[in-house]
Design a binder for these strands. Structure first.
Length: 566
RNA sequence: UGACCCAUGGUGUAAUUGGCAACACGUCUGAUUUUGGUUCAGAAGAGUCCAGGUUCGAGCCCUGGUGGGUCAACCA
């Protein structure tokens, strides 16, 4: 040993352009050196992996700078929003491992303040009531390349505007009859600045404010102000809001007297290959029964991934790895899968299970005897200990692990060949039993009693170790295998073709009769296992006292299958 | 015939005030292995969209292109 100390392995803290901008803000002493972020979901659907990226970014950033983060529901459109969604969102964020403490807010908390501020803007000649129809307003808005024209109601007096707005609130008008608009600039090259609508009339019951209001603020009018009132310093959102930023700033500019101001920064939303990532499309899959609910294990929703067997750690590591930029890209699902394998490899209880059973009779093993052999629970974690697995005369092995005429590189069982049954014995295939159709129905093997534990008694080697299960002691289970929901890398990237055209008809495969070692008998929903040599599986919530149901989270890497494909 | 944004190996991200392009996933070798997993060792793969300019020196700065994205809900 040298006396030079090895350099501490520096934890490479990944940075990103947002952190760099925050560093710059801090260097300038902005906002009293506070960093305060928020995650602002609209409670109109379930959270997906894209939201997880945003949550990790927003909340992770606050944690990095010892700041605070809020959870705020953007509930300004009661026609789409429901309490069910509020609950699922909270559950998902909590599951990911974030605790927002008492900082749980709703845009609807600010309806009164928002109203007052609107009145103020009217008084300052910065907002007006427009009587026109949606069609008329839309026609006047112009196009991206042609400026808009001003509404005939734009020059209404302050008094008239105040009166009309009060009556809008009082419910004197029908839906769509009037709107409140900000008076900005109809000739702006930015469409969002062309007198955006601040309030619309909606006689709709709100999940929190009930029937108190019949006018509701629009996103652009509510968001920045909510940020301001909560003391948010960095309002991180996705790229499509970039063109809204001047409007965000416009409203905040008129929210006077403070040496503090929130700043909107945009990043690229997550795109994952072979799936879709918009609430609208996911809702469509659910509503039209292309999947079995929001938490279908094939869905990229947080609840779907959870049910599928993904862990919070794996998702957060994934979010870390993909980084944060303004580049629109496409992340390979393989990276997500790598993240779960990595996490589960360290923690998952190992167990043996046979998906496609092939019966094996050990002809020289006494009938009725049960030999409890020792098995290691997790080679990656010695503290996980060992367990006993019953070995009997009749067993099941995986059909794929036997070939009557094995090709060159097939190491597994074949006529006359000896292999190891993991943790148990060396066995040799003596006879292949077929039915009248020529189907292999049973293998008759002999075992070497001296190889108990799977150790070769005389130093002889076998090229394969197979997983197995006792035909008489094993537990039956249903196993659900999942494949990508879509066959196309980018199902929503085809302008002419509906994304559903690319759905993978074989995304769900149900194996009703699999066998698992008795150890799993009392497993509870969401418990994770590695079925040795197969993959990671978890207990599905459909499991009952009578029937165990497993989901395959992800298969193990399989270089044999890969080599075989070529 | 607008505004705003983006452009680095196959994919995703790095590159301190301009200084010989780094990491992860994937791919391919080989070793170890009672999981064809894990782990370990190694390799291939971009000269940074294009064209100019500034500079001793440009992925980083400037100009002009090209390609892609976003914006015309009383959605968020």
């Amino acid at each position: 040993m040298t006396d030079k100390k090895a350099p501490e392995k520096e934890e490479v803290v990944k940075t990103n352009f947002i952190h760099q901008q925050i560093d710059a803000d801090l260097a300038e002493g902005k906002n009293g050196n506070r960093v305060h972020t928020r995650f602002p979901p609209e409670p109109n659907g379930y959270l997906h992996i894209g939201h997880a990226k945003s949550i990790c970014l927003n909340f992770g950033t606050a944690e990095k700078y010892n700041g605070l983060y809020n959870l705020r529901f953007d509930d300004t459109n009661p026609s789409k929003e429901e309490t069910e969604y509020v609950e699922s969102i909270k559950e998902d964020v909590r599951w990911l491992g974030f605790d927002w403490g008492d900082r749980e807010f709703f845009a609807s908390d600010y309806f009164d303040k928002l109203y007052d501020f609107a009145v103020e803007l009217i008084q300052n000649g910065l907002a007006y009531v427009d009587d026109q129809t949606p069609e008329e307003i839309s026609a006047q808005r112009g196009t991206p390349t042609r400026p808009g024209t001003e509404s005939p109601f734009r020059t209404r007096s302050v008094e008239e505007n105040l009166d009309l707005f009060a009556r809008m609130k009082a419910g004197e008008f029908q839906d769509g009859e009037k709107v409140l608009r900000a008076k900005v600039d109809m000739a702006s090259p930015n469409m969002h600045m062309r007198d955006p609508i601040m309030y619309r009339i909606m006689h709709v019951h709100h999940h929190r404010t009930g029937d108190k209001w019949c006018i509701y603020p629009m996103y652009d009018y509510a968001h920045g102000q909510s940020d301001f009132w909560e003391g948010i310093t960095h309002s991180i959102c996705t790229l499509e809001f970039e063109v809204h930023r001047p409007l965000y700033d416009w409203f905040v500019d008129h929210l006077k007297d403070a040496e503090y101001r929130p700043r909107q920064i945009e990043f690229a939303r997550l795109n994952l290959s072979y799936t879709v990532m918009s609430k609208r499309k996911l809702l469509e899959l659910v509503k039209d029964n292309h999947v079995n609910g929001w938490d279908d294990p094939r869905m990229p929703t947080i609840s779907g991934l959870r049910r599928r067997g993904y862990t919070p750690t794996s998702i957060r590591n994934f979010a870390d790895r993909i980084g944060v930029t303004k580049t629109n890209g496409m992340i390979d699902v393989g990276l997500l899968e790598h993240s779960v394998r990595e996490d589960l490899n360290k923690s998952a209880q190992r167990v043996m299970g046979v998906l496609n059973p092939l019966k094996v009779v050990i002809t020289n093993f006494p009938e009725g005897e049960v030999d409890m052999v020792d098995a290691i629970n997790n080679h990656e974690d010695e503290s996980a200990g060992t367990r006993k697995v019953p070995f009997t005369r009749e067993l099941y092995i995986e059909r794929d692990d036997f070939m009557e005429e094995p090709p060159r590189k097939f190491f597994r069982l074949a006529p006359g060949r000896e292999v190891r049954l993991r943790y148990a014995y060396f066995v040799t295939c003596q006879e292949v039993v077929k039915d009248e159709n020529g189907e292999i129905v049973e293998l008759r093997c002999t075992y070497d009693p001296d190889s108990r534990g799977g150790k070769s008694p005389d130093g002889r080697k076998v090229k394969a170790t197979l997983h197995w299960v006792s035909a008489t002691e094993a537990v039956e289970a249903e196993v659900r295998l999942y494949d990508r929901l879509f066959n196309d890398m980018d199902p929503q990237g085809h302008k002419e073709v509906d994304f559903k055209e690319f759905m993978n008809a074989d995304s769900l495969q149900i194996l009703p009769k699999c066998y698992v070692e008795p150890f799993v008998k009392d497993a509870k929903a969401l418990d994770h296992f590695q079925f040795e040599r197969l993959g990671y599986f978890n207990v599905d919530k459909d499991t009952t006292a009578e029937k165990l149901v497993f989901n395959r989270t992800v298969a193990l890497r399989d270089s044999w299958a890969k080599a075989n494909k070529k």
